[in-house]
Amino acid sequence: MTITRRQLLMLLPAAAIAWDSILAGTPEASPNYKVTDHWWGMLIDITKCIGCGACVQACKAENNVPDGYYRTWVERYHIAKWDTEMPQVDSPDGALHGFPPAKQEGGKNFFVPKLCNQCADSPCTQVCPVGATFISPDGVVLVDQKYCLGCRYCIQACPYGCRFLNPETKTASKCTLCYHRITKGLTTACCETCPTGARQLVDFKNPNDPVHKFLDTHSVQVLKPHLATRAKVYYYGLDGSVR
């Protein structure tokens, strides 16, 4: 079969359209979910956290997080009476197996669960040179594994230390707020397994979310508010010494 130059030129647009539809042919995972109807965040009640590490274990199981890396972790603070601004912090294995007995007696002691703060003005997404990390229209900071080059700019940019380079995929990895769960009407793995209800998923655009009642009547704070990242992980009972 021979093909003339004219025929080839006429075929090219058709081929381009076909290729376009091949590239766009991704499955719709959650057909009933509208991204514009949600604005996700989290509420963490420090006065309820017992440092059991159930959230860390659940996150690892749910998201296949490699050993030695954490998308969420729990820190234990010890603040001596004579130096309230210099806390001693430990987090053995990110609290994957809970905490051993404290070494120090007295003072102020508490646990602080940490995870990606899902900033609305996130420093990490601004530095990505290829558009691989972004804030989704429903307010979750995500990483496109197919686009990430592994340049690590975002890991350096995150002021909360919530990102890491996945040693298996060699791409940036972080908490997705269990995007595959919340888009199906479930809560995150960490909120699901938290035995005391210290962690709660919040949908700020859903007026029926029971967490709104808590937010309306309690003083909450975000981590590093001076950075103006508009973090959406709110802490209740947060001590000023927590960084």
Binding site: H180, K184, L186
Partner: peptide, 23 residues
């Protein structure tokens, strides 16, 4: 589609398998 990123990435991430069924 939504911003300076691949819009289909949302569906990619949302289609991950779940491990916890939920109570």
């Amino acid at each position: 589609q939504y911003g300076f990123y691949r819009g289909a990435a949302l569906a990619d991430i949302a289609s991950r398998p779940m491990m916890f069924a939920g109570h």
